[in-house]
Amino acid sequence: MRQIARRVRELVDSGFFELPPGISATAGDPLAVVDPAGALESWFVPFTASGKLVAWARMLPDLTPLEFSLLAGGRTDLAPDAADWLDPARIRARISAAAGDAASLPVLTYDGAPARLAWRAYSHGGSRRWWAAGTTVWEDHGDWEVTGGVESGSRK
């Protein structure tokens, strides 16, 4: 984990990862992103400023940079609250509210495509699976051969 943090710092210092001008964000501790089977897929490094999640970096376990993304296109005013993405307790509470049942501890993973980064949790004794990406929460109805997935309640 320290190696990941160090490599991200190097990439920021070199200009390879570039924050918008005038934004001085702090890189947080790397969080593990797991694949659907629970294996480590990548490391997620959040960049926060004034309580907002302004950017994130993702690194492969071998330190290869996977992506560096500016949330809301780099507009801090539109960036999500950091806690909506980084605070498991808040994420769990949000999922529990949507599920109407106490959700399990959320795990950082992705919904279908690795680019669709999201937290996953279960409710109703593990029989229902939920996703949360920031303030958006939806229920998973299984794997579909679609680009984008199927929103909760839309299954016909």
């Binding site: 992506e67 993304s69 949330l71 809301a72 680019a115 999201a118 990406a133």
Partner: peptide
């Protein structure tokens, strides 16, 4: 340089996405 509509209602600009990964 990827203009990614994910996450919902937020989106993100990824600079850069590793093409080989």
């Amino acid at each position: 340089l990827v203009y990614d509509p994910w996450a919902p209602n937020v989106g993100r600009i990824t600079k850069w996405e590793n093409f080989n990964a």
